[in-house]
Design a protein around this nucleic acid. Structure first.
Lengths: 212, 212, 212, 212
DNA sequence: AATGAATGAGATTTCATTCAT
DNA sequence: GATGAATGAAATCTCATTCAT
């Protein structure tokens, strides 16, 4: 009897995933503040004290969501942009993976990320993820530069990467607001802007053009 | 005597500005939810009921802040980017004005804007401002294209503008997080990416390169 | 110039009536508590401090409304039920006047009265009005009795009068809730119950019938 | 030990009754608006959030009180007025039960009922209870009529029932204001008026008498 | 392991009411 | 006489969080 086929006492790891699933949904739909721990516990089909026991405070719970979804997204991107490909191909595949992910998990990353921006409590986690993201992009660019025998200041690199990441996020929003749009085509458009702009920049072309 | 130096009973318009000033500061520093109406009233040197009487609900108050700061910023940009200049010059001056504004009002627009993203109640106001912004940028690009005798689909234009706006917002964040950074130089960097990328794109170059 | 044909500075009495008109309307429509002094002042086309200066506190203002409307109603009844008529005729005319008044001033009587019931602050005024009312009815009954050479205990008289007044009030509510109903017919129905019941009672018939 | 005499953590049903008891008292004594949720919670010996958790909004709480007390009273009346008794006996027992109930629970039904009248939010509940009450009375009258082979229009019946209910309520008020009065005697007085009046009316006697 | 019961603390909002001009 | 400006005080409601079973 205790070993009934419908498990009540699930192993901890499974329960935690259920809770995170519920939390991501509720946070996404209602926003961080409007979401209540009651809502989350109810959607997870579990009592509130369990949520606290397993995942801690509301803030900690949100960070956990952020972490899981962010990691999933980074993995999707990293898995697509294999390091042995040429840089433009890597960038392209990375962007495609990014927009694909955003399109597929409308509940997930992008929404959480938007919630987190501008809320001090999450600055730490946010900064960490952004850094990981920027590092990936900057890494690609640096690799291309080195292959080309060129050198660029670190700050320059960071800023460019930042701009690319920001542009992508912005288009992710645009995509979220235009459900009929095609993620693939959006990725193509972003790639055009990014690649052409970044390529030129890294090739040494600058603005304003050198005054003769 | 009648013009006593300690003013009580100020006219409505003055008080409203004081309140908005206070509200912008508090919202920026603590975030929308953590900010309390008590805090705002206290900083404005007035009692809470006055805030409600003049500016309405907390939500309405935030929208009012958003509106005032956004309008100020748009005016700063529009004032800098005179329509009779060449496009690259307009874009450059616009960006310089934008980053200058963000650098000078670190409490203002950019932070509020971040708060508002992802909060449904502000979606309307936000969309309106983003639209105004995108229109300005898209207008510049379209002008340049037409002057060049080229034609580009409206969606393409919108997406590119979106990407540029997003990239700029992202760098504004970066600027806010790096107080030692120079707004002017940040503008230059952004201009490089934007102009070179957009210019190429609009010039007809696309990615991927046509396969031979 | 000061004697412009459109009077701004109205004599006090007129202003007070305007305010009372506005107050009766607002109290009736929204209920005592939901009605705000702002609403009343606005509808009266005057500033709030004037309301306070002329008619005092919100509570006092409500009592003033109650008083004015109640007096009007009592006058209407008293005017209809001339003391030199036979008792049944007086009662009938009184009831007809009462239901006519209620039908005509649905805002005034019914709602004000309903508001006031059960609110301690107005118990005093209310009790006074009910007493006046009960006295009138009891007076009619006593007159009829005396004319008939019969005597009835004072408490009995009061209680019967109370019951009649209560029944009338109840039908007044019913009338207020059934706008299609005819006040005159309602008065007739009430008269039937009242007269037949009271008449029998006063005639010496009682319930239960004397056990043989 | 487990059944410690100082109970904390009572089961929900018990706490709900405690809260309703407290709410009825506070609402009765202070009136709906003057009553604060703090007062009620304190009298119930519990914290405010529990009241909200179990019984909802202040409005809902008041409706719950109304419902409980109204049901109790109707049950007291229905239990006393057994359907197999002759009509006058049923009416008499019903009235006695009514005045007995009102006399015993001076805090309860009658006072709440008065609060509710004229407040829109409670119109629904109120109408329902009044309807139940009127139906009971009208049922008695209709039964008597049918037994007598007579027929009366439905509206007539409703109006008469209304008048009787109103008269009873009014005497209930009178009883509440005269603590020394005897409920039983008050019931007798009401019965006299009601029965004699209604009996005559239903017997076909009307007012005015047919003009010869 | 799991949960119903319970609460401290604080937020927004609304009014009646009064200065000061 | 008349009013815009201003506020003290309070009420409702919600939540994250924790006992005790």
């Amino acid at each position: 009897m205790s070993s009934s086929p419908t498990f009540r006492r699930l192993p901890r790891a499974v329960r935690e995933q259920q809770m995170l699933d519920a939390a991501v949904r509720v946070f996404s739909r209602r926003g961080y503040h409007a979401a209540s721990m009651d809502d989350i516990a109810e959607l997870a089909g579990i009592s509130k004290p369990m949520v606290y026991a397993y995942l801690g405070t509301k803030e900690e719970l949100f960070v956990a969501c952020l972490h899981r979804e962010g990691t999933r997204m980074l993995e999707a991107i990293a898995g697509a942009a294999a390091p042995d490909l040429p840089t433009d191909e890597r960038l392209w595949r990375g962007l495609r993976a990014f927009f694909g992910f955003v399109g597929a998990h409308r509940d997930g990353w992008a929404v959480l990320y938007r919630q987190a921006r501008g809320s001090q409590p999450f600055a730490g986690e946010l900064a960490a993820m952004r850094t990981r993201m920027v590092e990936v992009v900057a890494g690609m660019l640096a690799h291309a530069l080195r292959a080309d025998g060129r050198e660029v200041g670190e700050t320059d690199l960071e800023v460019v990467a930042y701009a690319l990441v920001g542009a992508s996020e912005s288009l992710a929003d645009w995509l979220a607001d235009h459900p009929e749009a095609d993620p693939e085509q959006t990725a193509t458009r972003m790639m055009s802007v990014a690649w052409l702009g970044a390529a030129q920049l890294l090739a040494g072309t600058t603005w304003p053009p050198p005054q003769v």
